[in-house]
Every structure is written in structure tokens, then in C-alpha cells.
């Protein structure tokens, strides 16, 4: 392959990873925007989501790589898998908020953040102890279709991942921009006390942020399985940390920023792996993060909060 072909191929790969990181980064940004809380449990909501997706696919009788679906059956299975996974992950996010974080709502200091780390480890260990340490094969019912793009290969699977991620992100964006509760979410993120005095019930807004973010993390978990053909109890920390980095890179609290940050991290990972060395991926990603933050502390698209006078 020529350098150009490699670049093209890694762009394709990077955009797929980026789509997944972007979905995951949105959950960090939605919650942070409203609560100024870094929600580390999000890492493993994503991981649990990938197992839920696995079980849904298994329930359709898909287990190995051998069953290939096309047309309406494929569409139906994917639709049910995505909706099921997203609802379950969303509910998990709601439970975490209600049981572990709401009681700490008015506690100052790091209590809430530490709690999210605790919840993250609980999820991690529950999956480890109930499902086991081996990675699990993830069914891949997608037909193998490949297109040549110059010297690079474009997989049907990749196109599908892009389409689904774009659809979900567009839906989220429109929801946040246009719906009544979406506007309340933005208003609360910009000035929570003022939003309250407009009649916004901030608890409802927080619940919505957790639900949406966790549901997208579930979708990310399903996409992880489809992309890598496996899942395991450890996937939350690596992917979660990179997605969190994506959110910070884009400007935490900023919805389009999280999407762009996710895609950037995906591209950096793919290019770094190709042109430097896979083992150096995290060094590269976090060096770029540090560089960006030194020069733009609020991230690429973040805004330093305006002063209140």
C-alpha cells in the first residue's frame, strides 16, 4: 500500500473508532454540563451495554460468526438490539443517578465524583464475577461486503457504524436544540439557578441527561462489539478514558465539541497506530490532550464561563 492508501485506510478506521468515542463522550459532556460532575461510572455503563447487546443478539439465536443476515431480518435484529441495549443502559444510568448520586446532590467536595468511581468498580466486578474474565465472542450477523476505495478497503460494517452513529448524534442534537426539555437542559447548563427561576425542575433535567448519556453509551457498547467482534469486562476503562479525553478535548459540556473530540481521538488512535506504534497510542493521545489544554484550557470548542456581572 502507498502512504496515501494507508492514510485513507486509517482515516476510515479512525472514523469508526471516532464514532464510538463520540457516542461515549456525549454522556460525559451532558452530565458535566449540568452537574459539573465527572461521571466515571459512565465507563462501565458502556461495558455493561456491550454485554446487554451480546445477550440480545444471543436471544435471536446469534452466537458465533456463522449466521449472516440481510435485508429486513438484519434491520429488525439491529433495531431491536440497539433499542433494547439503549433502554437497558439508560435505565442503568437512571438507577445510578437516583440511588447513588441524588442523595449527594447538595454535598460539596469530591463525594459525588468518588461515588461514580465506586459505582464504576462495582459494575466492573459484578460483570467479572458473574460472566467471567474471558473475552466473549460477539456475534457478527453482518454480510461481508467490501468496496475498494483507491488502495483502501471500505467495509459494509464500517459504513453501518457510521450511519448509526450519525443518526444517533443527529437525533441527540435535534433533541437538545429543539425539544422543550432539551432547551431546559441547555438553559440549566448555562445558568442553573436562573433556569430554576423560569420553572425548570432541575432534577428532571439531570435525569434526562443521565438517561440520554447512558443510552448512547449502550449504543457505543453495541458498536464496540460489532467492530471488534468481542467484548470483555475490561473494555470500559480504555475506551472510557479515551472518550472522556475526547469530551475534554472538545470542551467538556459542549455537545458538538464532544462529537468532534471523539472523531479526533479516533483518528489520532488510528494514525498513531499506523505511523508510530500501537503501543504508543495512549502516549500520543494524552500528549495531544495536554498540549491542547495548555494552549486552550477550555478545550477546542469550550468557552470559559462568562462572569456573572
Amino acid at each position: 500500500m502507498t502512504t496515501f492508501d494507508l492514510l485513507l485506510q486509517q482515516t476510515i478506521n479512525g472514523l469508526s473508532l471516532g464514532a464510538m468515542y463520540a457516542l461515549l463522550a456525549l454522556g460525559f459532556t451532558l452530565v458535566y454540563g449540568i452537574l459539573e460532575l465527572i461521571n466515571f461510572s459512565h465507563f462501565n455503563v458502556f461495558m455493561v451495554g456491550s454485554f446487554v447487546a451480546l445477550f440480545v443478539l444471543q436471544a435471536f439465536g446469534l452466537s458465533g460468526q456463522e449466521v449472516i443476515l440481510t435485508g429486513l431480518p438484519l434491520f429488525g435484529v439491529l433495531l431491536v438490539a440497539f433499542i433494547g441495549t439503549m433502554l437497558f443502559s439508560g435505565a442503568l444510568g437512571l438507577a445510578i443517578e437516583r440511588l447513588c448520586l441524588r442523595p449527594l446532590r447538595n454535598v460539596k467536595g469530591p463525594a459525588a465524583m468518588i461515588t461514580t468511581i465506586g459505582v464504576s468498580y462495582i459494575l466492573f466486578n459484578v460483570i467479572l464475577l458473574t460472566i467471567g474474565a474471558d473475552s466473549k465472542n460477539f456475534p457478527n450477523p453482518l454480510p461481508v461486503i467490501r468496496w475498494k476505495l483507491a488502495g483502501a478497503t471500505l467495509d459494509f460494517r464500517v459504513v453501518l457504524i457510521w450511519a448509526i452513529a450519525l443518526l444517533l448524534m443527529a437525533a441527540l442534537y435535534i433533541f437538545v436544540q429543539r425539544s422543550r426539555i432539551g432547551k431546559a437542559m441547555r438553559a440549566t447548563a448555562q445558568d442553573a439557578e436562573a433556569a430554576r427561576m423560569m420553572g425548570v425542575e432541575v432534577d428532571k433535567v439531570i435525569v434526562m441527561a443521565f438517561f440520554l448519556g447512558s443510552a448512547l453509551a449502550g449504543a457505543g457498547g453495541l458498536i464496540f462489539g460489532l467492530y471488534y467482534n468481542f467484548t470483555s469486562f475490561i473494555i470500559g476503562f480504555t475506551a472510557g478514558l479515551r472518550a472522556f479525553t475526547a469530551a475534554v478535548l472538545g470542551g467538556i459540556g459542549n455537545v458538538p465539541g464532544a462529537m468532534v473530540g471523539g472523531v479526533l481521538i479516533g483518528l489520532i488512535e488510528a494514525m498513531g497506530g499506523q505511523f508510530i506504534a500501537t503501543a504508543w497510542t495512549d502516549v500520543i493521545i494524552f500528549s495531544i490532550l495536554v498540549l491542547v489544554l495548555v494552549f486552550k484550557p477550555a478545550g477546542l470548542f469550550g468557552r470559559i464561563a462568562p462572569s456573572k456581572s
Binding site: 441547555r186 445558568d191 433556569a195 425548570v200
Partner: peptide, 25 residues
């Protein structure tokens, strides 16, 4: 309904969206 000290508009929303927030309920 309040008119808050130092205005406290939602700075990154449009003027119309700010008015909509006033009629939130």
C-alpha cells in the same frame, strides 16, 4: 416571575429561546 440581578440571560441561547424559557411552564 423574576427579572434577575445582572440580567442572567442564558448567554448561548438566542433571544427568542430566552423568551421561550420565560414561558417554560
Amino acid at each position: 416571575a423574576p427579572v434577575l440581578e445582572a440580567r442572567r440571560l442564558f448567554p448561548r441561547m438566542t433571544v427568542f429561546e430566552n423568551l421561550e424559557m420565560g414561558a417554560y411552564l
